[in-house]
Every structure is written in structure tokens, then in C-alpha cells.
Design a protein around this nucleic acid. Structure first.
Lengths: 255, 255
DNA sequence: GTCTATATCTCGAAC
DNA sequence: GTTCGAGGTATAGAC
């Protein structure tokens, strides 16, 4: 790895390093007092202040303040970065098309500019995703409900693809919607759309069961499930926890 | 603004600067070869590679690769950062509670460590949000539909708060759901939940109209609107376009 | 390219 | 604290 750093550089020297970085496809970081203008999907203006600006080799731009996880301004990968001088002030621009978006950063002062080459061939491995929850149910369908038989994942309906489609112990068509964390009304509405669509698709008076699988539900989501005749089963992506399932209509008798 | 930078430092010197930064509540940046472990809402492991690590004074942690807009690992504001040495390797930890989450970064090599104080009192101003679309309709309800009368924003129903509630020219209760950009099935489902809930709330055979306002809709969302008896009106947050087209004649007669 | 849904989403506001 | 919905969401997968 190589690091080239300028401390409190003149604009001209900063520009040189930036243009070197654009050619070498390295990552550039700038610290200084700047103002930021954005125009594209929306429009924004950020008055002068101290920020950390990051220009990645893939065309990503990040402008970070000393607070928040989210950058105050940014540009997604694929953008074209350019830099120039205007009356001795360094100006960095990032543009893209489809949609047209443009971020302009005007520096009053520069405290540090660095060019870094980052070698990174590793991939992140992550556990606890919705996919893990799917695998858990497919590996042992009984954790969902005794006698459940998965038949398809991503089964298409007029309203979209269903996470798991199968039949219950009574051979009733069953739609399973998976969420890795506690769910609100949106997930209940999503499942409801799938059930409605599949009942139309099957064009029969046959009932389709809809089961929402998540660690837990909010009160309002639970009400929605009840009024729509949908069900809930508590399951987490982690295999550690055991399945504790409850049908909403049976709440009172269960407890 | 003050910047203190160490280039290819020994672990001990890096640790000193980190602890200075933790006390001063400045922003710390580290560049080096490291591996990252995360445990909390999910679990992840990132094998060794070169990355840029940012520790903000508000407790935010960011681990950035040379690609992507999203950090490969992170911690939200409010976390506690600590650093220590293990067999001459620098280890940075970030923890929080509720929920318990922990990120551990183990550095093989350090190429640069910086401590920066960022003064930034400015606020971002942004135009083109859903709020702008709301203001546009409230300022001139006719852009939605001739005779529409807004009565409440954020009107509560059993399914949640409605963006704009009002009456149309025939005094029919009308729910307006606003989106600043092209919408998919989720927005149609959201509007549908509100309409269903309000019809139950009013407990009458009275029909409630539901109008989705957005620049455009996807095909599937349009189908959903149709089957649910909902409507769509094309409007954007920007006042420039349509105020121009729709109201120009009125403006002229007004003046 | 568009569409659809997930995400350790983040963030703010309301209760 | 939880809940809910917006976001210039970003990102991946499918078509």
C-alpha cells in the first residue's frame, strides 16, 4: 500500500495530487473547510464548514461531517470526478448521468489531502440475514408448523415473488413471508398483497393461508394480520432460539 | 482546525493519538490492513484487507473499502470507542447497548492515523422532498383535482397517519398519499391500508377515495391501484414544471 | 436499462 | 423507550 499525504497544501499542489489519484485509480481523502452543492434527484446546499471528503476509485463520493453515520452529501459508484482551481480555490466536481446528478465542492481551506492505494480482495461474510431464516425453514419445515411442505421459493404471483410457497398438513396452499427482524404494518400489507393475488391466480374459492415469519410484530401489524385473516409465527434467523409459534387467533387460549 | 497525522506509525504511537482523540472528541481516521468482526443485530467477519476507518466524535464508526457508497462495517452514533494493543497489534473496539452491538478491528499494519477537529455549524438545506410536494398541494389544491379541499395533514387512522385528508368537490372523504419519486407496490399497499382503515373508522357504507400522488407509478403498482379502486395523480415536488403548465392561465387572469 | 424487495438500512418525529 | 414512515435511501437479483 502507498500513502501520499499533503498537510495544509496550496491549492495547486492539492490539485496535482488529485489528478494523480484520478489517473492511478486510488482513494483520495480531503479535509478542509468547504461548501457543497448538489443537484439531481433533489437539490441541496450546504454552507461552509469543516468536512472529510472521500473520493473512491469506483466513482463514489462521500462528504462526512463530524456527526452521523450517513454522509451529508454523496454520489454513488460510477460517477466521474474532476477537480480544478477557481480563483485559487480548489473545486471538486462529481457527475453522473441517468439520472443526471452533480455534486460541487468548493474548498475555502485545505488541511489535508491524501492519496491511498487500498488492496482488498476479501469478501464480507454475514450471518443472520433473511436468507438464513429461509434456509432454516427449508432445512426443517416443522419449525414453522408441523406438516408444512415447502414447494417453491420466489414463487411468482401477480403481486410479486413469494418468499416460500408450500402446502400445510391439510394440503392448503400456504404463503410464507420472511423478515429477519421485528415487523410493522408494511410487512403485513406485503403478505396481504401476495395472498390476495394468489387467490385470484388460483381463481378458486379455495382459501390461501398467509404466514408472516419474524422474531416479533408490532401491535398495529398484529391488528392488520388479524383483520386480514393472516397468521404469525415467531422465528429468528439464528438457529439457537427454538421455534415458538403462535397463531394470532389462538393467543388467548394459548396464554 | 487542527490536524495531527502519523505516517506508518508504530502501534504504540497510534494508540497514543487515538486516546488523545477520544479525550478531545475529535474525528480519527486510520488507514491500514485490518480485519473486522461484528456482532449484534447480525454477525459478520471481514478477512484482512486495506481499509479506511473513521471514528467520529459522536460515537459513529465507519469502515470503508475502496468500493461502494455503503461502509462494509459500521456502528451508529452513540457508541463507545476504545483502543488497545494485543501483541503489538492495534485493536479498535466500538460497542453499544440496546441493542448490544460490537465491532472489533484488528490492524496488521498501519499506514496513516490522523486526528482532526472539525468545526461545522451549518445545516443542509434540501429541496425536492415529500414535504415540498405537500406544501405545493396545500398552497393550491386544484393541482391535485378541481375542487379538492384539504382538511388535515397527518390525520390519524387505525392504520397510521394519512399524508393529506380532505373532501373532493362532491364532499367525498379523500385520502392523499404523497411520494416524491416513482412508486412501486409498497406505496399502493400503504394507501390501501389507510383507505380500508378509514372506511372502518367512519363505519359507514360511505366510500373513501384514495389518491396516490407521485411523479409516476410502476406497472404492477398501477394494477394494484386499479384492483383496489384507488387513483393516481402525477405530480412532482418541484413547483417549476407544473405550476407553469397548470396554473399559468389563472396567474394571468389573476394579475 | 426497469422493477422488486432487503438492509446490522439510517434518521427524525410522535406517542 | 417503541413505532412508524421517509430517504437524493443503497444494493442485489431478476427480467
Amino acid at each position: 500500500m502507498t500513502v501520499s499525504t499533503l498537510t495544509a497544501p496550496e491549492s495547486e499542489d492539492a490539485l496535482d495530487l488529485l489528478e494523480t489519484g484520478f489517473k492511478q485509480s486510488g482513494m483520495l481523502t480531503l479535509v478542509g473547510r468547504c461548501e457543497v452543492d448538489y443537484e439531481g434527484r433533489a437539490t441541496s446546499h450546504l454552507p461552509p464548514g469543516d468536512r472529510l471528503v472521500i473520493l473512491k476509485s469506483d466513482g463514489t463520493l462521500l462528504v462526512h461531517r463530524d456527526e452521523q453515520r450517513t454522509p451529508v452529501n454523496w454520489q454513488p459508484p460510477g460517477c466521474t470526478h474532476t477537480a480544478c482551481l477557481d480563483d485559487d480555490r480548489l473545486i471538486v466536481e462529481s457527475t453522473r448521468t441517468t439520472p443526471h446528478e452533480e455534486v460541487t465542492i468548493t474548498f475555502d481551506t485545505l488541511d489535508q489531502v491524501s492519496l491511498v492505494e487500498l488492496d482488498d480482495a476479501s469478501d464480507l461474510s454475514l450471518e443472520g440475514s433473511e436468507e438464513d431464516l429461509r434456509q432454516r425453514i427449508l432445512a426443517d419445515p416443522d419449525v414453522l408448523e408441523a406438516g408444512f411442505q415447502p414447494q417453491m421459493t420466489e414463487r411468482e404471483t401477480a403481486a410479486g415473488a413469494v418468499d416460500i410457497y408450500g402446502k400445510d398438513a391439510d394440503d392448503t396452499p400456504t404463503i410464507v413471508e420472511l423478515k429477519r427482524r421485528r415487523v410493522g404494518p408494511d410487512a403485513a400489507g406485503q403478505l396481504n398483497r401476495y395472498v390476495d393475488a394468489l387467490e385470484r391466480d388460483l381463481s378458486a374459492e379455495r382459501t390461501v393461508r398467509g404466514i408472516l415469519v419474524a422474531p416479533s410484530v408490532t401491535q398495529r401489524a398484529e391488528e392488520l394480520l388479524t383483520t386480514e385473516g393472516l397468521e404469525f409465527v415467531s422465528l429468528s434467523p439464528e438457529t439457537a432460539d427454538s421455534a415458538h409459534s403462535t397463531r394470532l387467533t389462538d393467543f388467548e387460549t394459548d396464554r
